[in-house]
Design a protein around this nucleic acid. Sequence first.
DNA 1: ATCTGATTTCAGAAGTTTTTGAAATCTCGG
DNA 2: CCGAGATTTCAAAAACTTCTGAAATCAGAT
Lengths: 213, 213
Amino acid sequence: MASGCRVRYDLSVTETASSPLPAPQPTRSEASSDRVGSNSALQRSREAFISHWGEMGSSWGVPRSMAEIHALLFIEGRPMNADEIMDRLQISRGNVSTTLRQLADWGIVTRVRQRGDRKDYFEAEQDVWNLLSLIVRARKRRELEPLLAALEDAKSLASAPGDSDDPKAIKAHIARLDSMNDALKRLDRLSDRFIGRGGRGLDVAVRLLASLL
Amino acid sequence: MASGCRVRYDLSVTETASSPLPAPQPTRSEASSDRVGSNSALQRSREAFISHWGEMGSSWGVPRSMAEIHALLFIEGRPMNADEIMDRLQISRGNVSTTLRQLADWGIVTRVRQRGDRKDYFEAEQDVWNLLSLIVRARKRRELEPLLAALEDAKSLASAPGDSDDPKAIKAHIARLDSMNDALKRLDRLSDRFIGRGGRGLDVAVRLLASLL
DNA sequence: ATCTGATTTCAGAAGTTTTTGAAATCTCGG
DNA sequence: CCGAGATTTCAAAAACTTCTGAAATCAGAT
């Protein structure tokens, strides 16, 4: 569903001076042919995880690089700074900065301070149920709730004052809006409970259901 | 999150002859300013529903026009043919054809035959829980399952034969993959039950949970 | 077979989203 | 207050997705 394969870009920043990074770590390989970088089994497994997570993200409307950054932080399980992320994923500084801020807004990633280091470090939520609940919460707020509001609007629009529509048709129309509204509202309320307390709710509910069905 | 406002396009097809359509129905209005077309309360309400549904779709990775076509069929609640859809939504024949096929593949829309009419008509699933279960089913197959397989791969990659990685690190890494895998697998199995029987399962489960939590 | 209207296909156009990278801004230490 | 490094911003570029429309294909009627 897409290829990939970006080109390397210049790392030097603003000032003219050369920034003597501790040893510019060779890049990862993208897919086949040439391999560079540390290619231990562990590293290759991480790479696989990252790219599959990125893939999944992009089919769910999450920018690939956002999903990849998150995957990297999750799978490394330790705080990383922007430079490390840039090097590892081969994406630009601006992109990393913007994306980290968004992930932090969603609450999926936390900014941590490293003693005696001016850089910002970031680490990902490690509890998967917590992670899922954060995602659900964010999408619910950004997408489900506005849609519910819109459905209410559509409903009130339909029952406007004097007009020339067939009352039968109006009734059927409103019934359709209502059934959609009901279903989504139920999911909405349900997700409230699910995410009620730090993801544990989701976990519990899922176990519960699994046994009941 | 986007504008819209496409231009009208030529309706005439292949042959040179003029296709005398029964009266090219004026176009809908996009948002504000000029209004054309039938503007009854009912019509405006439908329009609102369609565009909000389209909006939502596009933030979930569904092409706007696909979401709109589905919304139109759902809210009209009757079989419609390609020409009606083109006129109403102002989208091209090719787009309509391709999209209808996809919706039909997902099972969200059904092709129905109208006696004595060579055209194909399409109608949308009217039961919302059924609809949701069809959507869940499709996404599960197309996205969740491949991801689960990929996680398994990543896991086996990590425990490859003789290599230089710290055994501690490998253990931690595998634990992470496992926790992700477990959570997603549980969701996966759960959705199986949910959609087990034509959407009713989903409905029942949701009611059940709502009362339990 | 042929004709006619409906449908599908697909290359290119249009539109949208994502990414880049360099300049602006911020922040801390001295 | 200045300098050095870190971060943010944002206009422009690249990449990707979706859409168009004309030509090809298909299918029923004659």
